[in-house]
Design a protein around this nucleic acid. Structure first.
Lengths: 235, 235
DNA sequence: CTAACTTAGTTGACATTTACTACTAAGTAA
DNA sequence: TTACTTAGTAGTAAATGTCAACTAAGTTAG
């Protein structure tokens, strides 16, 4: 969102900038982003990326502020969180110059199922269509969302990032299928297995097997909370 | 640098945040970064990354602000410029909460030679040693510099970024040698040639040859001003 | 009880790419 | 004209990715 330059000499609240979040998860409708309907002007009633002012009295740093907003909107405490970019110019807010630090967050579908999805009635999951959503967004948020999508789609190629969209326990086939959906192309089964094993970011859950009317599959979990590098590239 | 929350109701100058720049170039001492000695408190007299307040009345956007600072310090108008990250917390400035948007800039050694290097006596090129420079830096700038180095070293692997550090005309050997210095390992001559040809970001300058007491080398220039992708990855 | 079915996971042949080495090319300098 | 130096090319071996077939392990139908 956006900044108002009010009179603020010794106020506890001194508007510096906002943090905005592109929060993604896999819903029954596929990859989706959480949007919030704006309560106040400007753009009252219009959908926007969840965000809020940095509260310099309670937020120790930018990431803390982003986590606070995320917690308020979704209840989720430990998402995958990554700074995307910072936008700042004179046009993005009708009230004048404003700065927004944009974060990308990925939420496990476990957390969605636990009723943490969209907490308030004013927040809702929107399925991704192409480079955005099928609704008009406030400010420059359509652009920010498009940038966020570009980032995560690129990162699918060389990181373990998509694993954070799955439940905490999953099979290799489920993971591969997710990669394929995000990449939009089929992957080779044995190559996928091999690379995942080499990267070493998955831990088999001993004894646990996913069973259906066929050969049961080994169940895995992520080794660490944050994303590890799948190949040899970062950023 | 850093933000002071003064009384500013209808001032033209409303401090929002600062932009700080990690400006790199190849000097006779190898990869170097431009540092400025701080004139005022805090950290008066201490070396720091060049930076400055965003002037919302003259800077249309963040990148404009970064280019302005760069122009002031170096005279260079058309560098390679890329947003690195934004830092913001309560501790980085003794005066309290502050936000800085950090950019990485690469300057052609042509521009250095044209006397544009360090304009004022208070700015100076420092050679990179390991993950930083051999001098104490103000604020969290040692950390920011280290992050900037990590970014450009990673990007060497898959982008044409290093070409922006060379003069506008160069030979393949010069480019390869630069990549090798930045990567810290030898590259294969024919493989390098092949990949550069495939990426198609170099244009041979017809007729021009670099001659010494040996076979003359074809001279090249960059196809476009901004960095193209060398392989099939970005970000 | 057994055969058919489905998905998990493995194996191996072939194609493509990369790594390494040696070669030829084109100038200068003695 | 020969030695020297760096530019640029060529060819082979090793590594890696691609593709397709195969075996494994369960459920379900008859």
């Amino acid at each position: 969102m956006v900044q108002i330059m009010t009179t603020h000499d010794n106020d506890a609240f001194k508007p510096i900038a906002t943090v905005d979040l592109a929060i993604f998860s896999m819903t029954p409708n596929g990859l989706s982003v959480l949007l919030a309907r704006r309560a106040n002007a400007p753009f009252a009633g219009v959908w926007a990326l969840p965000g809020g002012w940095i509260h310099i009295d309670i937020d120790h740093d930018l990431e803390t502020a982003a986590r606070r907003v995320l917690k308020e909107k979704t209840g989720v405490e430990m998402p995958y969180l990554e700074q995307l970019q910072t936008v700042g110019n004179a046009n993005r807010d009708p009230r004048g110059w404003s700065i927004s630090v944009v974060y990308v967050a990925l939420i496990s579908s476990d957390d969605l199922a636990a009723g943490q999805g969209a907490r308030s009635g004013e927040a809702q999951w929107w399925p991704i269509e192409g480079n955005g959503v099928d609704v008009h967004l406030a400010f420059d948020h359509a652009l920010l969302l498009s940038d966020a999508l570009t980032r995560i789609r690129k990162k699918v190629e060389y990181s373990t990032l998509p694993a954070h969209l799955l439940p905490s326990r999953f099979t290799l086939s489920e993971l591969q299928s997710l990669y394929e959906r995000l990449l939009g192309r089929k992957l080779d089964k044995s190559a996928f297995r091999k690379r995942v094993a080499e990267a070493g970011f998955l831990v088999p859950v001993e004894g646990e097997m996913r069973r259906a009317s066929n050969r049961p599959a080994q169940v895995f979990r992520l080794k660490d909370a944050q994303s590890l590098v799948l190949f040899d590239r970062t950023l």
